[in-house]
Design a protein around this nucleic acid. Structure first.
Lengths: 218, 218
DNA sequence: AAACAAATCTTTCCACTGGAAAGACATCCG
DNA sequence: CGGATGTCTTTCCAGTGGAAAGATTTGTTT
């Protein structure tokens, strides 16, 4: 019943590879990396909904179950991909470091430059937030936005009581503001408003003005 | 090749109905309504990801293609469902009418009370935003949040030049703030922060304080 | 070097999805 | 009564993610 088949071909080569003249071996060498870059390519081009297990593995030239060994399941793969996005966002914020206003702009503009990645980063239904890779990237990013809770020095041993209520409230408001603007802008929710503007304005200009219109960011 | 089959049964009854003793007729009578309430029930209980064509139709006791005639496709059904959510949100805002701060709270608290519906309302990949029902509900809601652009009276005939830039910026910021807080809160993104709070606080309290921490809402 | 163990990828299969196409049934309208 | 029309069902199809087991390469141990 089982055909060992494998139509006649070079015995030491496995998959037919596309575009490159490289001979694809049975063991890919760096399949997880290849899958991640294939996924990134598809994400940027076709959006989150195109990030299937089969499309991605097909683009990498392997069978659709090949990813399981490296990432467990689709959510595992997407979690790592999303984590790289969180790292990119954090890097963008760091390089724009300075005033809160610049940080806010960096957050929103990253989303505008990478709308699909930004969407993926917060699609909790697609990713596994408990994945270590994602957890670390997420807490690193949000620690940068909020700062760490103050540490009190008790007899030389440092310990923290956690965030102050007012700080937490301000942090929530700030994050909510930039995140909300980013979500609305990347989802095209502001376009009806933009099209009814007295004098024309780009998305970028509108969100910049919006950030500037909030007193703490002035 | 085709078996007219239909195993022996009562000739004038079509589907086996569940729970109720009602005899389900071939023509349902109000299938679109039944599908919408079944979808709403599933949405509230199991979340957006459970909103499949087959689960919903199954719950309504009809075949999985029965919805096509009424809604076209799944996106059509979900668009109508999301539109009812937009209407609910608008109603909540109206009933809380008054200060901008109360409007902001109404927006966020509706999301906290109906997190799955709130998610669906803004899942552009699942719904058809060009659907008339959704379009109307959306513009009605957002017109209420932003108000209409000022009308200038030119010789008795009213006309509008569109929104002023500053108004649009403030509107974007306000909407972004409440929307962002709602998204982050309903998605559990604030929970790590809450758990590290010095004195314990509920989600509701945190978002309320967050809104209050923004000067325009004071 | 040979034998064995472990890692990596493929094949095959399964349950599930949304939708197209066509048939069956009910109701309305002349 | 007799279509015509609207409504629902049956059947089929191309997809999806993943489980299970086989094939193949690499590493490890003797």
């Amino acid at each position: 019943m089982k055909k060992p088949g494998k139509r006649a071909g070079e015995p030491s080569r496995a998959g037919n590879d596309r575009s490159t003249g490289q001979t694809t071996r049975y063991h890919h060498g760096d399949l997880s990396g290849a899958l991640l870059s294939a996924a990134r390519f598809i994400l940027d081009r076709d959006g989150v909904s195109a990030l299937g297990l089969r499309p991605v593995t097909r683009a990498a030239g392997v069978s659709h179950t090949a990813a399981a060994h490296h990432f467990g399941d689709l959510a595992g793969l997407l979690s790592e991909l999303a984590a790289t996005g969180l790292d990119e966002l954090r890097a963008a914020i760091i390089s724009a470091a300075g005033t809160p206003r610049l940080i806010a702009e960096a957050y929103v503009f990253y989303a505008l430059r990478h709308p699909h990645m930004f969407e993926l980063m917060f699609r909790s239904d697609l990713i596994d937030r408990t994945s270590p890779r994602y957890r670390n990237a997420a807490s690193a990013l949000f620690a940068m936005l909020a700062g760490s809770p103050e540490v009190s020095d008790h007899d030389g041993q440092k310990e923290t009581d956690g965030y102050d209520s007012q700080d937490a409230a301000r942090y929530t408001a700030a994050w909510g503001l930039v995140h909300g603007i980013a979500v609305l802008a990347t989802d095209g929710r502001l376009d009806p408003l933009i099209s009814r503007l007295r004098e024309p304005m780009s998305r970028e200009d509108l969100v910049r003005q919006a950030i500037l219109s909030v007193p703490p960011f002035l």
